[in-house]
Nucleic acid binder design. Structure first.
Lengths: 341, 341
DNA sequence: CTGAAAGCGCTTACAG
DNA sequence: CTGAAAGCGCTTACAG
């Protein structure tokens, strides 16, 4: 049978209150008492029942984390960061993957969104789900949204400046001397994708240049591959391509390779996200590193501030991405691939 | 203030017992009572306190899942599968990433390994951690180990037959006509890696062939790249390479590409795991698909069997991988790359 | 079909 | 520094 706090108290010859105090590291316990209790705990292999603790304390010590999938490296890095941050605070991570269809996500969120079940919720989603916000507010559960670009509500959020990311990437190419710059952006419904394209446009406009071409698609290898293959077929290639993310960049390079077009000699490619493969596959991909660890840490911090009752509505923390130039970007060729001498 | 079961009872004009019954979907409630209770629940926006439920029921409805990292696609697929399986059963997923250093993992596991905190634990680890097993057994927490190849204890586990995987892959190459087959296996401390190599050796021996070469390294792009680059420098390349996983295969192809050696015309490559990129980057990688979803489902099933008290010690469920031939494997060339006419 | 009572295992004031 | 008492919000027999 599992030992309870009463067993420990009895064995140690003290009251359960004292046992509770040493469990909770209260300082007001005589050293000798503490010792006896510790000994009893050891001997009985006692571990406090967390359900009882939660009930008595009115808090569960678990934080819910909602994520859209388990495949995106950026997301996984944030999850890892959150996991670590929570752990140092003695909190648990209850993970829930929000499926695609609405019913599904409804069930899941309701499941997680029970007060007393979680002390707070972290939402990591590229898409703004209004019903989550409503639901969470209804139930009075503290929450913060991470990596979301919409915040017209009084909602705490941690965002990464994607406009700056898109801008920086373009500046990099501009400074290398490129003028014919194309862009394969992410999907329209993702504001992060939108913002990167906006940053691109801003930077171009600033120097009085027109985008060579702009296409949009999913954050996927196939998007990059298909679009670039089409461009090649059309014999209309810029001297540099800004990709919405690294998957697109890998796909773009894949298509280029099949046509023996060299990167970066013939064309420069730059991605976004710093996928693990970016620094491993050759040539090493120039890209943008998002502060994933920072996002996780700040998210947890903001959530705990809120849980502590700091009435900090609508706190928005904006983090900056960092460009990492590697081997896929260089000066433009004298002549574009399909240009005549 | 949050509504309790008493508020609901009062408003509905019944006792808390009846409310409890409708919450728990007991059939022994008069329709009219049930209706009143439902109405009160709606009006008060009542949600049962899960800590109280856990305490009263003696179970938490949460399952702990221990994983080594958040980057391996196979692992993530299993996590997803477990998440779904748990959800349909009304269970929560408490995730914990086991860090590298021992201290760390100790802290984490102790944290998760509290009876009453979790009803059961699923361990997904390529390395057999004896202290986990001991600890879990001590505390009498049901658990099952997934994707582990060692099971000398009375421990339930779900394993995938890596020997068969290695064997099948080799047969595939053999049937295409290859005789000079090399292998870049995963690390020595991973039994899964070991088994794949064993499968390779077995298949070769069966047809009276010697392995052309066998090297080992981490499951990493760099391993494949470095080893193949070395082979190229040594002018000693087999006509087919069996890679311990897809990362190694990607690295191998990367090195080959830099030397303009064609896949599969000059050399065949086959990976393991069916990484998302395997079917996207060109040429599409021949590989082995592990039954990740199945592993998750069976793991959850086995765990629940155990939780229900089925005294099923040492249940081992062995699942089979499936080879997926794609475009990186074909008949061997007339002459090896470095062979003279 | 329904409810009074006891209990799940802790923590929190309060009093000393 | 310590303990008696009440309470956290539910569920589980038990009796009716």
């Amino acid at each position: 049978m599992k030992a309870s706090i009463y067993d420990v108290a009895e064995r140690a010859g003290v009251s359960v209150v004292t046992v509770s105090r040493v469990i909770n590291k209260a300082t007001t316990v005589r050293a000798s008492s503490k010792e006896k209790v510790m000994k009893a705990i050891k001997e009985l292999n006692y571990q406090p029942n967390s359900a009882a603790q939660s009930l008595a304390r009115g808090k569960s010590n678990v934080i819910g984390l909602l994520i859209p999938n388990l495949t995106d490296p950026f997301i996984m890095e944030v999850v890892d960061s959150v996991d670590r941050a929570l752990e140092t605070k003695g909190y648990f991570l209850a993970l829930s993957v929000i499926g695609g269809n609405d019913n599904d996500s409804d069930v899941r969120s309701n499941f997680l969104f029970q007060q007393e079940r979680v002390d707070g919720v972290l939402i990591l989603t590229p898409i703004f789900e209004e019903n989550y916000v409503t639901s969470l507010k209804d139930k009075n559960i503290p929450f913060v949204i991470m990596d979301n670009q919409i915040f017209p509500y009084t909602v705490s959020s941690i965002v990464v400046d994607n406009i700056k990311g898109g801008y920086d990437v373009t500046r990099h190419l501009l400074e290398l001397g490129h003028t014919k710059i194309g862009c394969i952006g992410g999907p329209y419904h993702l504001l992060s994708a939108e913002h990167r394209v906006t940053g691109f446009k801003n930077a171009m406009q600033e120097v009085g240049l027109e985008p060579f071409v702009i296409k949009r698609g999913d954050f996927d290898v196939e998007t990059g591959y298909d679009i670039v293959a089409q461009w090649i077929q059309d014999k209309a290639l810029p001297t540099a391509i800004i990709c919405g993310d690294d998957h697109i960049a890998f796909g773009a390079m894949d298509a280029l390779r099949e046509h023996a077009i060299r990167v970066p000699e013939d064309i420069s490619i730059i991605g976004y996200d710093d996928h693990p493969f970016a620094s491993k596959l050759h040539p090493h991909l120039s890209t943008v590193k998002q502060p994933a660890v920072e996002v996780g840490i700040k998210g947890v911090e903001a959530l705990f501030d809120q849980m502590r009752g700091k009435k900090v509505n609508n706190i928005v923390i904006k983090l900056e991405p960092e460009i990492i130039p590697r081997s896929t970007t260089s000066m433009p060729p004298e002549l574009g691939i399909f240009e005549e001498d």
